[in-house]
Measured scan of single mutants.
Amino acid sequence: QKPVSAYALFFRDTQAAIKGQNPNATFGEVSKIVASMWDSLGEEQKQVYKRKTEAAKKEYLKALAAYR
């Protein structure tokens, strides 16, 4: 399975908490809140997710090379 983006990892980590705080929110509303949070996130915090994405990408490429 291809690795997901840094934003997708952040979304996955954040979505449940947002939904818990806003139980009646639609998926679209939750998405807007998470997107706003991502935009206001500091670069250092974004780097945490970007590093996770890079590590997953390297593992994916290694597994793909081994498969071929």
Rank of each mutant, 00 (worst) to 15 (best):
Y7D: 02
F11A: 07
A16I: 10
Q1C: 04
S40H: 10
A25I: 09
V30L: 09
M37S: 06
A25C: 04
K52W: 02
K57C: 06
S36V: 07
I33H: 05
K50R: 13
Q47F: 03
F10I: 00
A66N: 14
A35M: 06
A66Q: 14
A16S: 08
R51W: 10
W38R: 00
I33A: 09
R68Y: 05
A6F: 02
G42Y: 03
D13S: 03
I18Y: 12
S36Y: 07
A17W: 06
A56K: 15
Q47L: 07
E59F: 03
P23M: 01
K58H: 06
E29A: 05
Y60A: 13
A25D: 01
Q21G: 05
F27Q: 14
R51K: 13
K19F: 08
G42T: 13
S40F: 01
T26L: 02
V4M: 15
R12V: 03
E44N: 09
D13R: 00
K2W: 01
M37V: 05
S36A: 12
T14M: 13
A8R: 11
F11N: 07
R51H: 11
S5Y: 01
S40Q: 12
E59G: 06
P23A: 05
K19Q: 13
T14P: 02
F27H: 15
Y60L: 04
M37E: 09
F27L: 13
N24A: 07
K32V: 05
L64K: 15
Q1D: 15
A25P: 00
L61W: 07
A6Q: 07
E59C: 04
A8K: 12
R68D: 15
K58D: 12
V4L: 13
A6L: 04
D13F: 03
A17G: 07
Y60W: 06
A17H: 11
E54P: 09
D13Q: 03
A56Y: 09
V34Q: 00
Q1N: 15
K62S: 10
A35E: 12
Q45G: 08
L41H: 01
K46L: 02
V34L: 03
T26A: 06
Q15E: 10
A16T: 11
A65F: 09
K50S: 07
F27S: 15
E54A: 10
V4W: 05
T14W: 04
T14D: 01
E44R: 04
K52C: 02
I18E: 01
Y7R: 06
L41K: 00
D39S: 12
R12C: 03
K57P: 08
T26F: 00
K2Q: 04
Y7V: 02
E44C: 12
T53D: 11
D39H: 10
V30F: 01
A56E: 12
E44M: 03
L9D: 07
Q47A: 09
S36W: 02
R51G: 11
G42S: 14
A16H: 10
S36M: 09
E59D: 13
Q47R: 11
P23E: 02
A66K: 06
A16R: 12
A6C: 04
N22Q: 07
Q45S: 09
Q15I: 13
E54R: 07
R68G: 12
Y60E: 14
K58T: 10
K32H: 05
Y67M: 15
K19N: 02
Q21Y: 04
S5V: 01
A16G: 07
F11M: 09
E43L: 09
P3R: 08
F10P: 02
Y60G: 09
N22L: 06
L9E: 15
K58C: 10
A17E: 10
A66V: 13
K46N: 01
F10W: 00
E44Q: 10
A35I: 09
E43S: 09
Y67A: 15
A25L: 08
K32D: 10
K2H: 12
G20S: 14
A17Y: 10
W38S: 00
D13I: 03
E54G: 05
A35N: 06
A55Q: 12
G20N: 10
A66R: 13
S31E: 12
R51A: 11
A17F: 10
L41A: 06
Q1S: 04
D39A: 11
Q45H: 14
A35C: 06
G42R: 06
R51N: 11
F27K: 15
K19W: 03
A25G: 01
A35S: 11
K32C: 05
K62Q: 09
S31L: 02
P3Y: 05
P3S: 11
K57D: 13
Q21F: 03
K19A: 11
K57A: 11
E54C: 06
R12E: 13
S40C: 04
K46P: 00
N24S: 13
I18P: 00
P23C: 02
G20P: 05
Q45C: 03
V30T: 04
D39Y: 06
V34N: 02
E54M: 08
E54W: 05
N24E: 12
V4A: 07
E43P: 13
T26S: 13
Y60S: 13
Q15V: 08
K19V: 09
K57L: 04
L41P: 01
R68Q: 11
D39P: 01
A25Q: 05
K32N: 15
L9P: 00
Q1I: 11
P3A: 07
K62H: 11
S36C: 05
V48D: 07
A55K: 13
K52V: 02
P3T: 08
G20V: 13
G28D: 14
K32F: 03
A56L: 09
T53C: 10
T14R: 11
A66T: 15
Y7T: 01
R51Y: 07
R12I: 06
K57E: 13
R51M: 10
K62R: 12
Q1W: 05
T14L: 05
Q21R: 13
T14F: 00
A63Y: 08
E54L: 09
A56P: 06
G28I: 10
R12M: 11
V4D: 10
L61D: 15
R68E: 15
K62A: 11
A8Y: 03
L64T: 15
I18L: 04
N24H: 13
I33Y: 08
M37T: 11
S31T: 09
A35V: 01
A8L: 06
Q15P: 00
L9R: 03
W38L: 00
V30A: 00
V30I: 12
D13V: 04
I33V: 08
K62L: 04
F11S: 06
Y7N: 12
E54I: 12
E54Q: 08
Q45N: 06
T26N: 13
M37F: 04
E43W: 04
F10Y: 13
S31G: 06
E54F: 07
Y67I: 12
I18M: 03
A16V: 05
Q15N: 07
A16P: 13
F27C: 07
S5L: 00
P3G: 13
V34A: 12
G28C: 11
Q47H: 06
A55M: 11
L64V: 14
K62M: 07
Y7S: 04
E44T: 10
T14V: 08
Q21A: 11
W38E: 02
Y49F: 15
M37C: 07
